[in-house]
Amino acid sequence: MNDVIKLTPPLTDADVEKLVIGDRVEITGVIFTGRDAAHKRLVELLKEEKELPFDLRGQIIYYVGPSPAPPGRPVGAAGPTTSYRMDPYAPLLIEAGLKGMIGKGARSREVIEAMKEYKAVYFAAIGGAGALMARSIKKAEVIAYPELGPEAIRRLEVVNFPVVVVNDVRGNDLYREGVKRYSRVKAA
């Protein structure tokens, strides 16, 4: 496996252009959480040309709804949720300047095209390793939509948060490539 690449948002076009599928990346700095309900609201704001709760440009959104923080911890378990549910919203956010998304599972053709056109990448974190991943989250603060509970938008401070590049700016897809390598099924 390749060496680990260190990244700190905000990311530039140049930062994401050098990433290739399969790259192991560790993110340190600030990332934002958002899943189904928050995405719906962000896209409504963009369509109405209203201000977002945070400046999207160069940022990374982590598709996660953490479990509640027990006393003395910033957050409970915090692994990724399945990304395809954010596909209807993601292209608009990418167009507005979002540079990275962290989740699990495959993205739609439209999202992959938007990543190519506006220079953004999609990272996978390990689904179901929420207890382990929470160790990389040092601080969590709800910055918008507290009424959404687990779906509120949080500002996370992370240190060496481990992810893998699944879709790069060239339209490559690690899921497709990885499965091709290990499949024993003859192509129909």
Binding site: G65, P66, P70, I126, G130, A131, L132
Partner: peptide, 18 residues
């Protein structure tokens, strides 16, 4: 994933946030 299960048990936090 095996390490994650160990952390969850020892620290009494959920295996998965869901």
């Amino acid at each position: 994933l095996i390490l994650n299960a160990k952390i969850a048990r020892e620290e009494s936090i959920p295996i998965c946030q869901d």
